[in-house]
Amino acid sequence: MSWRTQVRAVLRICWFNGFLGLARSPLVLVALFLTPVSFLFFIYVLAPRSELPFGVVGGILFSCLFTGTGMMNDCAYLRLERQLQQVFISSPLRPISWVLGMALSQLVFTVPALVLFLTVLLLVTPVSALSFLALLGLIVLAWLLSASLGFLLSTFFRTLREIWPIGMIVFTSLSVIPPVFYPLAAVPADFRWVAFLAPSTFASQLAAHAVGLPVASVPSVPFLSSPAGLVVGLVGLTVLFIGVAMRFARWREP
């Protein structure tokens, strides 16, 4: 199959798994909105108004990272419960096209939440066109990173029951515990480097830079205080995650 046919296949998977899935199960949208909007509500009620943009940026990143959970659940479900991954992989479709199609279809589920949070962000803080573009780039990177991690994890499960606890642990470690919804400054200076064990911290700090929010320094690792260092870190981690997913994803059972 030519690369054009592969691209068309990716878009078809996105269409029937993403758009048609969303159109026929719109309740998924409510579930996707619920967590980030709840966090934003608590920040709005409990925190000073100056913290609100952090909550909105957190909502954007949370939505992107949620594609990882969706990817993990969906891919594992289609492989273990429906055995449809086997049907699609045993065909001229390249495995990478299957993954991209699945990842894009997860993005479809996230787009309404992203639109909402980006709109709120424009309302609560001034964002230049360049910053907005930077933010879109961040969204793409966060999506690629979380989707590749989600797919990689999905391939290691033997039953669907194992997925729920692992998904909860991984996702919470990526999106709730690190400074995604709150500023890095809230973490004691000597321990800020620990937050960077979660790739999402790179994304949240870059997002803060992009929209002009105050960004705390990391005294023990100065590299992590500069936007260039953060870009290198996030791009490097994304490439690493995609590479690991492609290398170790179990297309064939051992």
């Binding site: 199959m1 046919t5 068309r8 296949a9 078809r12 998977i13 269409w15 029937f16 798994n17 048609l20 899935g21 026929r24 199960s25 419960e81 429906r82 055995q83 449809l84 086997q86 049907v87 699609f88 065909s91 001229p92 479709l93």
Partner: peptide, 22 residues
């Protein structure tokens, strides 16, 4: 013991699968 997508119709299953295969 494979199963189809729960949200797609039989027609969509066949047509989309063929399109994905090129």
């Amino acid at each position: 013991e494979g199963k189809p997508f729960y949200h797609l119709t039989p027609r969509e299953h066949v047509e989309e699968y063929l399109l994905v295969r090129g």
